[in-house]
Amino acid sequence: MTEFPLIEVTDLRRTFDVSKPWLERTLARESRQLLKAVDGVSFHIRKGETFALVGESGSGKSTVARMVVGLLEPSGGEVRIAGVPMTGGSHAAERRRLRRRIQMIFQDPFASLDPRWRVGDIIGEPIRAFGVAENRRDVTARAGELLRLVGLDPADAQKFPHEFSGGQRQRIAIARALAADSDFIVCDEPTSALDVSVQAQILNLMRDLQDRLGLTYLFISHNLAVVRHMATTIGVMYLGRLVEVAPARQLFAAPRHPYTRMLLDAVPDLAMSGRPRTPVQGEIPSPISPPSGCTFHPRCGLANDRCRAEAPAPIDGVACHAVAEGRVPELRASA
């Protein structure tokens, strides 16, 4: 592992215009409505690491993923990969070269594969596009190799996506992501559409591939148990902001941000250990009109006037006034 971070995300921002059409808006005398999906997110990922972003719906975690891979333009801030800024005027040639190293695995394996294409062509598309192999035989050979790598049969290249189950399709999607020798894979809820026994297959496969090929993952999920299984470092997002970043072990053993604690408490207790739990309160506010100050304050038992007025800046990985002021009670280390 090198000390040099492979991915550096600095103060990333993205707003969406969710206003009504111009004519309607003008007639109703409404102003533009902007949704701050991502509001100043910074983190970095070292090579070979799995960085997980967790959060509930509307937390902006998928938006971050799409900006990191370049599917979405940031409204502000910067993504650097191997030190090269991925936005802005310069470095165009280097960016093109780096693009090849970044691929993505999507949530719904039924939507991420073109239903009209044969599996061999789906996997062959990046091989051709990035010039890994040119002639037909080499592409076919490479596609077959990849299919074997993800636990399928090279003969499956002749089939169409609908002939496969969800888990098998996700394997195909993984093969496509690896086709151009990419080493940084952004995984957007890769198993949340799958059954648990299939999820286990896919998670194990992803870990094996990471060990074999030295992959780096940015892993997006709402499922803390899955994240616990995959991640080396975890970032918890709430309403577009990163509220806590910590090494996985530390985050689960000693969560500091009140929201992280609440999330952990909400996870169903399969082991029936009878661990102490505090009931969860309230629902996530609309990101169109987020609460003032710290956006978590309406659901937080520790909120005071400062929390309602002033957005906390991250200190030592935690963005919380209560933590900074030492108002958060210590948790027993058992959790």
């Binding site: 286990a200 297959q201 194990n204 870990r207 803390l224 689960f252 082991a271």
Partner: peptide, 17 residues
């Protein structure tokens, strides 16, 4: 099923579907 408690490195998987 991945859990919060057991930090198993590999999950048990049932082959096939």
């Amino acid at each position: 099923i991945p859990t919060l408690e057991g930090a198993a490195d590999r999950l048990v998987q049932i082959p096939g579907s």
